[in-house]
């Protein structure tokens, strides 16, 4: 039982982080708070994806003694899995560009309705 908790507690904390972001997305009324929730949600999922790459006893994915020693055999088990890192680099950059577009839309909404609260905007649209 203790072994089960020790090998799975990371996933549970990632799920709690994702729940915090999801609650901020659908439960909060302020638009900037919703965008903070989106950020937390995406970061939690990226954290989960990177954590699948971790290996016990593995080092950074940079080949040691690369130049000047000739080609020698490389043990893949002693390096961390590099593929999730590559995919998540792309995901982080896309996350920030969507954040920029979302904040631009928020500024445009504030110029038109003069408020950031969701219920007041819906009240003005009636």
């Amino acid at each position: 039982m203790f072994d089960f908790i020790l090998s799975k507690y990371n996933y549970w904390i990632y799920i709690i982080l994702m729940m915090i972001g999801f609650y901020a997305m659908i439960g909060k009324k302020n638009l900037v708070k919703k965008i903070i929730g989106i950020n937390i949600f995406q970061t939690a999922i990226i954290l989960f994806f990177v954590s699948t790459a971790a290996k016990r006893g593995g080092t950074l994915p940079i080949v040691e003694h690369a130049h000047g020693h000739g080609i020698h055999h490389i043990h893949a088990a002693s390096y961390v899995n590099p593929l999730p890192h590559v995919l998540m680099l792309t995901a982080i950059v896309v996350m920030v560009s969507t954040l920029g577009v979302a904040l631009a839309i928020v500024i445009a909404i504030y110029r038109r309705y003069n408020t950031l609260e969701e219920d007041e905007i819906l009240e003005q649209r009636k």
């Binding site: 790459a53 971790a54 998540m88 982080i92 950059v93 996350m95 920030v96």
Partner: peptide, 19 residues
């Protein structure tokens, strides 16, 4: 700490800085 150094410095510069 997990060994993803490239992801770590991209996060530190792009998400924590520009964001």
């Amino acid at each position: 700490e997990m060994g993803a150094v490239d992801v770590a410095f991209t996060e530190a510069s792009v998400s924590a800085g520009i964001g």
